[in-house]
Write a protein that binds this DNA or RNA. Sequence first.
DNA 1: TTAGCATTTTAGCCTTGGCTAAATTCTCGG
DNA 2: CCGAGAATTTAGCCAAGGCTAAAATGCTAA
Lengths: 139, 139
Amino acid sequence: MTVKNVKFKRLRDAHTRETAEDYVEMIQELVTEQGEARLTDLAHRFGVTSVTVHKILARLQRENLIQSQPYRAIFLTDKGKKMALQSRKRHEIVYQFLRSLGVSEKIAHIDAEGIEHHVSSETLRLFEKFTPHSTKKKP
Amino acid sequence: MTVKNVKFKRLRDAHTRETAEDYVEMIQELVTEQGEARLTDLAHRFGVTSVTVHKILARLQRENLIQSQPYRAIFLTDKGKKMALQSRKRHEIVYQFLRSLGVSEKIAHIDAEGIEHHVSSETLRLFEKFTPHSTKKKP
DNA sequence: TTAGCATTTTAGCCTTGGCTAAATTCTCGG
DNA sequence: CCGAGAATTTAGCCAAGGCTAAAATGCTAA
C-alpha cells in the first residue's frame, strides 16, 4: 500500500461507525419511550446477548458518545445526541422516500436501516427533493 | 437470547456476505478486463494489502465462490459467477436509479456500492420501475 | 430484612478483516 | 540458465463484535 491509499483507510472504520449510529439511535429511542435505556433493552432490540452489548457500550463510552455508571442506565452525551439526531434524520428521509416509491412499511423500515449509513448528503438531498411530503398528519 | 431470535442470526453474517459480493464482483470485472484476476490487482483496487486479500480469498475458496492454484490467478466458480452476476445487476439498477435522480456520476458510484447490499428485491423492483431507461446507447 | 430473580459485568473463547515482517515461489531479462 | 525483483504465502499481531459460563450487583416481594 502506497501513500495514495490513505484515503481508503476510512473504509475500514465504516462498519464500526454504523454500529455506533445504530446504537445511539436506539438509545435515544429508548430514552424517549421509557425515560432511560437499559443494556437489556438494547440486547433485546438488536437480538444479541447482553455481553455483546456491554462490549459495544464500553467502546461507545470510550468514544464519548454515551455516559453511564456501572449497573445503571445508559444516556447519550451531547456528542451522542448530535449523532443520534443526524442519524434519525437520515433514517427518516430514506424511509419516507422509500415509502413514496411504494415500498411497504415493513420492508421500508428494514431497507432504510441498511441504506441510511451509505447515502451521501448529495443523494440524501435528492431523496428529500423527490419525496412528496404530505402537509397533513394522519387523522 | 431466546429461540425467537434465531431469525436475527443472519444479520451477523451480513458484513461477510457484503465482502464476498464485492470481491466476486471485482474478480469478474478483472477477468473481463484482463482475462484473469491477480491477487495484487485486488489489493490495489480495494486499497488493502495483499495479505488481507489473501485471507479473504482463502475464505471465498472455502465457500466455493472462487477457485485458484497457489501462486496463480483467481477465477470464479459457477456459484461465484452467479453471485457476481446478481451483484452486478443490483449495482447497475441502483446506480442508474441514482443517476436518474440527478446524482453525479462519481457520487452515484460510491453510493451505489454502499447501498446495493441493502436493498430488498421489493425496493429494487421499484427502483427499476422509476428509472427511465434510455432506448439508445450513447453515440 | 432478606432471599431469590433479574441485570450487569468479567473471563475467556471464536471469526473476520485489518496490519507488518519475513519466507517462498514465480518470471523475465540478460 | 540464473538471479533479481515482483508476487504470493506464512506467521503473528490487533480490534470489533459475536458467543457461553460464571461472578457480582441490584431490586422487589414476601
